[in-house]
């Protein structure tokens, strides 16, 4: 069964020459008829589908449109043309943990972030124990996040995202968190969710992770799909291409 389908998805950005724009500059440009932006196609004609229980890897160099694609799918950015079908609840974890408030305790942060994902206080409360257990942070939930190490914050963020019960999960570069043991736990958790029917789109620069978790891979280049298909084959092509460059 299909969880997500994108059909010739395109996204045009306006790149401003000297951001940020101010009313003063806008007025100046209006009267002098100067154009202060140029158009950039961040995604062009991207089509793919994602099945339930499938993990799709997104690879490509920086600026190839991977994160933009995730943001479009997560309804954070609008798209210029094309169509998207989404079946079920979708949750995106981009820049993992970047929204954490350092003055707040781990527990308060979990409530705030659960609410941002649209969960009621009661539903988050029911998951707190599970999340803390997964993140191995049981004894630290009442401590302000300022006192957490970077790894602890990442663990908390990852534990939250894999425990909010969504049908589609978009994860951006956040698998390489914590120590070896914790990473193994993350992999096992993703495998477990997959077998329960959760679909994943994973963005990573770590090809080992992609090879291990993904059933299929999309290779993005300058906003277009350069290749799509069997993980092993695409990764080989990608490795060959980067080596030549």
């Amino acid at each position: 069964m299909e969880a997500l389908k994108a059909e010739s998805l395109s996204k045009k950005f306006r790149i401003f020459h000297q951001p940020p724009l101010t009313l003063q500059k806008a007025a100046y440009n209006f009267f002098h008829r100067t154009q202060l932006y140029q158009d950039l196609w961040a995604l062009e004609g991207v089509s793919f589908s994602l099945q339930r229980g499938e993990a799709l890897g997104l690879i490509g160099t920086n600026g190839s449109g991977k994160t933009t694609l995730l943001r479009v799918l997560a309804n954070i950015y609008s798209f210029t043309s094309g169509r998207v079908w989404i079946q079920g609840r979708l949750a995106a974890s981009l820049e993992l943990g970047s929204g954490f408030l350092l003055e707040f305790t781990g527990l308060e942060n979990l409530y705030l972030h659960g609410a941002i994902f649209g969960l009621s206080r009661r539903r988050i409360a029911a998951k707190i124990a599970k999340i803390a257990e997964f993140a191995q942070l049981k004894d630290f939930l009442d401590v302000p996040l300022r006192q957490y190490s970077f790894g602890m914050r990442m663990r908390l963020a990852f534990a939250l995202i894999v425990n909010i019960e969504s049908d589609i999960l978009l994860i951006d570069e956040s698998l390489a968190v914590g120590d070896v043991a914790f990473r193994e736990k993350c992999f096992a958790r993703i495998e477990g969710l997959k077998s329960q029917g959760t679909a994943f789109i994973l963005v990573s620069h770590n090809m080992e992770e992609i090879a291990r978790l993904c059933d299929r891979v999309i290779w993005l280049e300058k906003g277009r799909i350069r290749a799509c298909g069997n993980t092993e084959r695409i990764l080989q092509e990608y490795a060959r291409d980067t080596r030549v460059k």
């Binding site: 943001r71 997560a74 309804n75 954070i76 995106a92 974890s93 981009l94 820049e95 970047s98 929204g99 941002i116 994902f117 649209g118």
Partner: peptide, 9 residues
């Protein structure tokens, strides 16, 4: 912006 850019709400 860290919320607005990364989560839909």
């Amino acid at each position: 912006s860290s919320f607005v850019k990364n989560v839909y709400f």
